[in-house]
């Protein structure tokens, strides 16, 4: 199991050919109190870099981009009733979707934990 990060502050935890995707704690902190998460439907397909979800605070709405190409196999329905989970556990319980990876090679372009932390410090 390995976790990767994007410059747009998404994370993906990969197990086999399935990845779990969410936004980082850093991003959640910047956004403020999260009040709503709009998620795709199971079965939706997207390419790396597509916007596939929207995360909203009271005064802002941000698109969330797909870190890899794939199709959605599960969405985190619990976020509908408890969007605050994104602030409390962005990189844990507040995962957005699980995807079936279309191309594992895309992972090589992403950052590991240390690289992402260094990236955030530079912001």
């Amino acid at each position: 199991m390995t976790i990767y990060f994007t410059k747009d502050h998404e994370w993906i935890r990969v197990e086999g050919d399935t990845g779990t995707v969410g936004i980082t704690a850093y991003a959640a902190g910047q956004l403020g109190d999260v009040v709503y998460v709009e998620l795709p439907e199971t079965g939706a397909k997207f390419s790396k870099g597509d916007d596939f979800a929207v995360v909203e605070s009271v005064k802002a709405a941000s698109d969330v981009y797909a870190p890899v190409s794939g199709s959605v196999v599960e969405v985190n329905g619990a976020l509908a009733d408890a969007p605050e989970t994104v602030n409390a556990a962005a990189e844990g319980d507040a995962w957005f979707v699980r995807v079936k990876l279309a191309d594992r090679a895309e992972l090589s372009g992403l950052m590991d934990q240390a690289a992402y932390e260094a990236f955030c410090e530079g912001l």
């Binding site: 709503y36 909203e56 605070s57 009271v58 005064k59 802002a60 709405a61």
Partner: peptide, 14 residues
């Protein structure tokens, strides 16, 4: 006023 992220002053072109 609430759910303002639907509106132009926040969401602009979307």
């Amino acid at each position: 006023l609430t759910l303002s992220t639907r509106e132009q002053h926040i969401r602009r072109d979307k």
